[in-house]
Design a protein around this nucleic acid. Structure first.
Length: 257
DNA sequence: AAAACCTCCAACCGCCAAGCG
DNA sequence: TCGCTTGGCGGTTGGAGGTTT
């Protein structure tokens, strides 16, 4: 153990499972003072716990509206899609699955999804999982949409990040414009991602269900140009016909399961 | 019945970034 | 600019409970 400020080792602070009494003290404190100011919690409650332990207990267990029990089919489906988009960014993923915490999502992924994909990979060089549902983890790295980009999305939309960091899009039927030409490395901006995901998964989730695929591959500039040209012929009444000006994507490393 | 093994999840660890003086 | 504190995150682990032998 290092001398990190949050460390409880060597300070006589309690570790391990929380008792019902401790839960009650923490809950009462947060109901009275609100979330945040975690460093004040031990003093206010008398709990012999470090601030981080208090925060974690609240966020993962005591917070209202936390859903417990098995993940429903639609939750797993949503998790898979979000993981394709965001990679192991559990807090972002959890933020899109009501009632689930980042820890829940991470645990579920590590105990259910990941072993399955590993097993399938072992059993078949062709990796059947990837064929059935193209799994591409887009690990966020800084990317920035250009100022002129306009993103909208239709059914049967395929979004492709090429090896050079360019984001292009293909659509095989009439839909909505998605004139994304390029992205370039820049700054993390999660709230922009959340804004996009709000549109993507909340407002029109039914339209996307089963139709959107994320893939990663090499795409030439010509291909991107062709796709953009095709977009010009499509109408503009997009499901996601909002500007993504200034949207900055986190890193987009590609990593297959 | 009990030992061995397995599963899963709550909690911890270590790191990072933001804020502040 | 620097160092410290704090909040937050993802990775990892310990152990309780369930299952198998």
């Amino acid at each position: 153990m290092t001398s990190h400020s949050h460390s409880s080792s060597g300070l006589g602070l309690k570790k391990g499972a929380w008792s019902a009494h401790e839960d009650m003290l923490l809950k009462n404190c947060i109901e009275q003072y609100g979330e945040g100011k975690w460093h004040l919690i031990p003093g206010r409650t008398g709990l012999n716990r470090c601030r981080k332990s208090c925060r974690l207990r609240w966020l993962n267990y005591l917070r209202p509206n936390i859903k417990r029990g098995d993940f429903a089919e639609d939750e797993v489906d949503l998790m898979l899609r979000l993981h394709k988009l965001l990679g192991n960014r559990w807090s972002l993923i959890a933020g899109r699955i009501p009632g689930r915490t980042a820890n829940d999502v991470k645990n579920y992924w590590n105990t259910h999804i990941q072993p399955r994909s590993k097993q399938q990979k072992t059993e078949s060089d062709a990796d059947e999982l990837l064929q059935d549902a193209p799994v591409t983890i887009i690990n966020p790295q800084p990317y920035t949409m250009s100022k002129t980009q306009n993103l909208s999305m239709s059914d049967n939309t395929q979004i492709v990040f090429n090896g050079g960091g360019n984001l292009i899009r293909s659509s095989n039927e009439g839909g909505n414009n998605f004139n994304v030409s390029s992205v370039s490395p820049n700054v993390l901006l999660d709230d922009k991602i959340n804004k996009y995901l709000d549109e993507l998964f909340d407002d029109r989730e039914m339209e996307i269900e089963g139709d959107i695929e994320w893939s990663f591959g090499e795409s030439s500039a010509a291909q991107a140009e062709a796709l953009n040209a095709a977009d010009q012929e499509e109408d503009n009444n997009g499901l996601f016909d909002f500007s993504l000006d200034e949207i900055m994507w986190n890193s987009m490393d590609s990593q297959q399961l």
